[in-house]
């Protein structure tokens, strides 16, 4: 790896702080209309209010439950399909082009179809999130499974491994670095899709629902508060994913 000069810890925060300062300045100087862009403190106050007295906890829990159900379904289906594509030449030839074609379709184009099949309530939302989470899990697992070294395949043959032992002890752990990259993207996609599903499908408790509410009742402080919460969650998710990844791959040299 190329050694990078170490930056002081506050450096990544520099640009956000400048933006925040400009925002504050714009509000105070009256350059912006507070109805469209409430000042930062109003947004933070709203975050605080929603956390302590409002229903933020309920909405957050609903979104997280929905997102994690979709992630679980989509990512497990994705890893399974990726393994199939990566390990079986027949499956790769039959299903590979189909999957690549599916990837060319913009994710939100599936919304009308899924809402017809599964309805706009919980099932439809989870189906959409699963579909979103599946794609990156498939792509990366596929690649990882296809790149299992020949030496390991040969070793498994010499040890007379059956297919299940091969998958369990050679293919899955061998593809793990790729699978983890896939799961990390799946996490991001699932979270995006969760908010998307909450915005575009039936109204239900959830952060997307609150965003909608803020827009429709013209409470920009609520809209911005939801965005702040989403941003914070995004950072927390990627931190957790990075830590989990490092832990799982720690033993390897």
């Amino acid at each position: 790896m190329i050694p990078r000069p170490s930056l002081p810890p506050w450096r990544p925060l520099l640009i956000p702080l400048i933006v925040l300062a400009l925002w504050e300045l714009a509000s105070r100087a009256g350059w912006s209309d507070a109805r469209f862009l409430p000042p930062p403190e109003a947004v933070l106050r709203r975050v605080w209010f929603e956390t302590t007295q409002g229903g933020l906890a309920t909405d957050l829990a609903a979104s997280l439950r929905r997102g994690s159900s979709g992630l679980l379904i989509g990512a497990s289906a994705g890893v399974a399909l990726g393994l199939l594509l990566g390990l079986s030449r027949v499956a790769e030839r039959l299903l590979g082009p189909l999957f690549l074609a599916y990837r060319q379709v913009a994710l939100f184009a599936w919304v009308p179809l899924l809402s017809m099949w599964f309805g706009g309530a919980e099932a439809g939302k989870i189906a959409f999130i699963s579909l979103a989470a599946m794609a990156p899990a498939v792509v990366n697992t596929w690649r990882g499974a296809r790149d299992i070294p020949r030496a390991h395949v040969e070793l498994a043959a010499v040890l007379t491994f059956g297919r299940l032992d091969f998958i369990r002890f050679v293919a899955l752990p061998g593809a793990l670095p790729f699978i983890l990259v896939g799961l990390r993207s799946a996490l991001i996609y699932a979270w995006l899709a969760t908010i998307g599903a909450e915005l575009f499908l039936n109204i239900a408790p959830g952060l997307g629902g609150r965003l909608n509410e803020g827009r429709e009742t013209f409470q920009m402080d609520l809209v911005l508060a939801c965005i702040v919460v989403l941003g914070a969650l995004g950072i927390a998710f990627s931190r957790c994913a990075a830590i989990g990844e490092a832990r799982l791959l720690r033993r390897r040299g």
């Binding site: 030496a151 390991h152 070793l155 752990p173 061998g174 033993r251 390897r252 040299g253």
Partner: peptide, 10 residues
């Protein structure tokens, strides 16, 4: 084999 071919995750 010439190289140990150990599975690095075990």
């Amino acid at each position: 084999f010439q190289e140990p071919r150990l599975l690095p995750w075990l």
